[in-house]
Nucleic acid binder design. Sequence first.
DNA 1: CACTCAAGCAACCTTCGGTTGCGTGTAGCG
DNA 2: CGCTACACGCAACCGAAGGTTGCTTGAGTG
Lengths: 120, 120
Amino acid sequence: MTAVIDDDLWSAIGDPTRRRMLDMLLAAGGGTATSLSHELPVTRQAVAKHLGVLHRVGLVHAAPIGREMCYRLDDAQFARAVAQLSTVGASWDARLQRITQIAEAIQRRQDADPGRQNKT
Amino acid sequence: MTAVIDDDLWSAIGDPTRRRMLDMLLAAGGGTATSLSHELPVTRQAVAKHLGVLHRVGLVHAAPIGREMCYRLDDAQFARAVAQLSTVGASWDARLQRITQIAEAIQRRQDADPGRQNKT
DNA sequence: CACTCAAGCAACCTTCGGTTGCGTGTAGCG
DNA sequence: CGCTACACGCAACCGAAGGTTGCTTGAGTG
């Protein structure tokens, strides 16, 4: 019962540079390719490409202001991305806890009855 | 104040195929490159490469069983990966809620006093 | 012993993240 | 009004990553 995941959205937030860009946009409330690139270890063009990706998946809007292009987060889409993170995390966490408990149970049983072994 | 993130670990779970593989390993408790590839839209070799990546970042162990190579999750490392998901998700979620509240506050103020507008 | 089936290379292709370089248009100033 | 400066967009190029096909090897089984 894997949660339904938008792979495009997931990939968009999967890239470390894009993750940092989202961080910055979230903190600053908006920015241009040039302004973002000032605080990132990549060039303006790389940032522009990433902004294009983010725009394609609907995570940011572009608004031309004079000769600049101001990008802002789309709150709704961003919230959906965050929700996917939580969903996957929670799902994995739950299953991990289940199998951990099972493993512990098996361990206890073997401790109590070492003669029994499973040969597959 | 971005949470400290292990980019290698993050990238490992960032790939959609690897995410599904982790899903399957978590559900089945283990598997081989061949067995995993049966339920994935990629070839055995692609799966094998991904298993190599997952192994390098410590998310899986490899155990040779006869002529097969059985991979299992490393619970501890996997738990760390899940923790990173939660961390980033929670951090973004918190900030998103903050700015949402601010936006609502501004909205309320403008509703109450339409004469005041901020021209930036 | 011969056969089968899973692994493990190796070569190749395509996409993606990133860079450099160039042309263009708009804002601002003498 | 014209010039400079700056930000943008486009194109070419590069290396690494995800993926494929093809082949070899080697452990199990009849």
